[in-house]
Design a protein around this nucleic acid. Structure first.
Lengths: 219, 219
DNA sequence: TGCCAGGTGGCAGCAAGCTGCCACCGTTTG
DNA sequence: CAAACGGTGGCAGCTTGCTGCCACCTGGCA
């Protein structure tokens, strides 16, 4: 195979990927914004079925997704299912605008950002590209939180609004200024803060700041 | 240019890079284990001279290096020099085994991992590859610390007593309880806290908690 | 001895944060 | 339709935190 080729549309991708998915020997690394950005449900189902195959246990699977992927119940279940069957799942602190798939440190598959309507995929086997992508993948991986830390029931469940409030707190604004900036009343803002302190099991705002920082909730 | 090409050895790389370095318009992103892993001093000097050129101010420069790069005095100076002239420098938490250079989101240059003795370079302009590498670069970037946080000499301005106060704050005690426990009056305790907020450049106790956590001052 | 500098603690007044109470509003439920 | 419910915002009263002011103590110095 040439060092770099382009697959046009999902059909070609699925046709290409099918034997590749079955030939994974060592490791499968995947970074994605959400779990399924597949345009068609059929493609989505096909990919998920590979993921569900028992063979997944034979190799190591590294799945790095943005926190956005945890919003949908469906996605959470799928991730937990993957994790339950041995895959390593971590949640990146940043949005990860583009997907990245690396198989056995041999093949990298990268969807072309948009193309609006149909998606193309760039496939490369150039060792330098694989190495560079992997180095950055690992750097992002190392600084990401485990799935468990996000979903453990005794772990603070903090939604998007909670995070924006934590960010407001972290910016050093007064309550009044923060409430105004977030478009809510002072009373509601403080209700939220009280709820967050409670969720973080913090007895003071200082302690809450400490905890929030540890949990990476202010980014 | 083809979407992917390989440059053999440093000479080819330098010849290729020279016009590219001068044509940077918007942004120059670079991830590296150390500052100069150039095999020859000559190559190292050439690259540094580009970096030193006044033109660097015309575009944004993002430099992400491992902590290992801070070991040598020489490297520290070079990084500080870069930062002083407008480049953004951050320190990654992980080793970043392979270098990555991206110019204007158009061209990615990736050294081939080893080849022992002479280095080859893979150059690609495939948008998907650039996008994927950039997405991961940005994820690693966002979770990395600024150069200042690593090198600022005025950081350990906080003495042993300051730390014990930060620990008291972090334990969630009220001011009154903390002051009692530390054997000082409420007034003095609050004076100390105010001083710490000032030293941490924090506008609120929450923000101070965040900062103190980042700097590991509460352990 | 007197003076000064620097740190401490009390006090007071103000600002900021916390929370119970209640009224209001849109949605859901019977 | 009415009742119940959950979320919001205003208000009030309280607690906590913040800081200027001043008195006090200690150590250094002339």
């Amino acid at each position: 195979m040439a060092e770099i080729t382009t697959l046009r549309g999902d059909a070609q991708f699925l046709a290409f990927m099918e034997p590749v998915a079955r030939s994974i020997r060592e490791e499968f690394s995947c970074a994605a914004r959400e779990l399924s950005t597949w345009p068609s449900m059929a493609a989505s189902e096909t990919v998920r079925s590979w993921m569900r195959s028992p063979e997944i246990g034979r190799h190591r699977t590294w799945k790095l997704v943005s926190a956005a992927a945890l919003v949908s119940e469906d996605s959470r279940e799928h991730l937990l299912d993957l994790a339950g069957r041995g895959a390593e799942v971590r949640i990146a602190a940043t949005p990860l605008p583009q997907e990245t798939i690396i198989v056995d440190r041999r093949i990298a598959i990268l969807p072309v950002p948009d193309a609006l309507g149909r998606r193309d995929y760039t496939v490369t086997t150039a060792p330098a590209v694989i190495g560079g992508v992997l180095a950055l993948f690992e750097a992002a991986w190392e600084t990401s939180a485990g799935l468990a830390a996000f979903l453990r029931p005794d772990q603070p469940q903090i939604d998007v609004e909670g995070r924006s409030i934590l960010r407001a707190l972290g910016s050093g604004l007064s309550d009044e200024a923060a409430a105004g900036q977030l478009g809510m009343s002072l009373r509601t803002y403080r209700r939220r803060v009280a709820g967050l302190l409670d969720a973080l099991d913090a007895g003071s705002r200082f302690q809450a700041g400490l905890r929030a920082g540890e949990l990476g909730l202010t980014r």
